[in-house]
Design a protein around this nucleic acid. Structure first.
Lengths: 342, 342
DNA sequence: CTGTTAGCGCTTTCAT
DNA sequence: ATGAAAGCGCTAACAG
């Protein structure tokens, strides 16, 4: 009913108080507020409130080249690990006045690059990438253009080029292997993720090292995705090969889910015949039957830290490279049990 | 290495070819391209490519008041139903050159309103809201400000005021009740969601109607959330009350998960002793044990349709109100079985 | 068909 | 401490 159509601009406030637009602008900006007499500032703020002034972020962006938005790329929003990470990122960014632009890349580097470029065109102030491959063209692009960026959860081969927030995989896998060893398992199978992704390659490497160190027989299969389907295929192969392993360490929870499903369909019971350990402790992993024993990473904290780091980088682009390593923990549930050698 | 610092603007192309900026602008805009001689257009496009011209969406937005961004609000990104809906939305919007701004409102109307206002400040062209309460202040705000908006999955009391993409709950619940009736269940319990949300109120109402019509004993509990926890509490109450119901129709899958967990912990087996039906067919519901029988809604399609509708509304704001009703289907898995009266 | 010109709303020299 | 004025990059009257 109130035909309150017109947007209030700085000009309106200025006219209203008979000062210049420059003065209004300065009074309303915390960084320049000190340049203006206190009383004047107060008057301007009052008028702004009174008139219902809302600054135009677009005009500001055009003028200052800062948009207060950051782009976030995830490989697969359907993977339950990512929503909590996104949540953590948004929480922190939001509190600091930033907007979050989320894009889903479907695990495809080309798609990712396209999206990243679109966001660059939109002038985002920086990126948080959760979708990095070991050799990643999007990361390279950002590096080249010197756009503030932090990698979360995944990273690139040459990690010292970038800021990163990662889980301490070595520690995580050690937890898993110790747990399994204590249960009497001496022959383990690792369902590894794709070798072009950090966790795929690194977890496998650590797995093999630690097995050797602990005198445990190590088997492994390198799968082509961190998905339920890949886990299922891995388990199928495992059954066909008549492997002697008594426990499976999956590359992530989704793979664990797929593996358990296949084992169950084949009449192999978990954990009685085979123990399964996942990685991530994604939401709902406690609601599976058997509930999944897994290496838990602090999802939200991942997001928070990544956001915090990025804002730091945006403020001081030349800050030295940072690596934040978050410590995982073992969550023992129902999918692991004492080894009953077969 | 290429010190390619400077952004190429329309001005640069114009100078390069000795035409005016207006001509360049027109040549590069599909809607005005026809005003310019073909050869000139070609020349301009070539030069643009050659010089690496990237238009500034910010300048365009300032000038035209169109940002080609839309805001999407979800009540809880951790609920697995929403990621696929978001996916569907983004797919469609992206194809049409729009950017998606996703905000998570934690089921809180105040938070939602704040977020919506922030996005309005950022000049989004429209909203897709998946978080509506029956009486929703954010929806009211958008209505008041006449901002293009479509509601998806949830709606408001006075639905004819808004564009909506919803599931046909009546049909869905009918499917569920028929299924249960065929299995011999004559006493059903509905775990209803909060009555201030469409699905909470509506599904309960339909449930009661259809039970009456089918001569089925209806029981129900009204819970305060569509969450695992609420489902668990509902099941607890169910056990304490020593209800005679032999099947539970949960308000959504999360509630079903919580209920099944509680039943299992109490030593009540699903589906042997109690059948459970969910609603939504969220990702992973097929990986639960027992795998969840549920009413499946086409998540992606929800998103697609909502996006399609919104773009339509943005183009023609005065289009008549639309309601898109998507048909659910019953997915029978392991959580329902023949009634063995207790 | 094309050019001239005037802004969109804001910040920031430069001057006073 | 404040104001005048220029301009970020683009589009859209208006004029020819």
């Amino acid at each position: 009913m109130t035909g309150n159509k017109k947007r209030i601009r700085i000009r309106d406030i200025a006219d209203h108080l008979d000062v210049s637009t420059a003065t209004v602008s300065r009074a309303l900006n915390p960084n320049t507020e000190h340049m203006i007499r206190k009383e004047v500032v107060a008057g301007i703020k009052d008028a702004a409130r009174e008139l219902g002034y809302i600054p135009s972020p677009i005009a500001t962006a055009l003028r200052t080249d800062r948009t207060y938005t950051v782009g976030v790329a995830v490989p697969d929003i359907l993977n339950p690990v990512f929503p909590p990470i996104i949540n953590g990122i948004q929480d922190h960014l939001h509190q600091n006045g930033y907007l979050t632009l989320i894009v889903n890349t479907n695990n495809d580097q080309r798609v990712a690059l396209d999206e990243i470029r679109r966001l660059i065109t939109r002038q985002v102030d920086g990126f948080i990438l959760a979708n990095a491959f070991l050799d990643d063209i999007s990361v390279r692009e950002c590096l080249l253009r010197e756009i503030p960026m932090v990698l979360v959860n995944r990273s690139i081969k040459n990690g010292n080029l970038v800021h990163q927030v990662l889980s301490d995989d070595e520690f995580g896998i050690e937890l898993a292997i110790n747990h399994l060893a204590e249960l009497g398992h001496v022959r383990l199978l690792h369902l590894a993720g794709p070798p072009n992704i950090l966790h795929g390659k690194q977890r496998l490497k650590i797995f093999r090292q630690l097995c050797r160190k602990n005198k445990i027989q190590d088997e492994y299969m390198v799968m082509d995705a961190f998905s339920i389907d890949a886990g299922a295929r891995g388990a199928q192969q495992f059954l066909q090969q008549q492997s002697k392993a008594t426990a499976i360490l999956a590359g992530n929870d989704l793979m664990a889910v797929g593996a358990m499903d296949t084992l169950r369909n084949a009449g192999v019971s978990v954990p009685e015949e085979i123990s399964v350990v996942g990685f991530n402790d994604m939401p709902l992993s406690d609601m599976l039957r058997p509930a999944l024993t897994t290496i838990s990473i602090p999802h939200m904290e991942f997001g928070n830290q990544a956001a915090r780091l990025l804002l730091q980088v945006i403020e001081s682009p030349d800050i030295s490279r940072q690596l934040v390593l978050l410590t995982p923990k073992l969550v023992i549930r129902e999918s692991t049990a004492k080894c009953r050698s077969r």
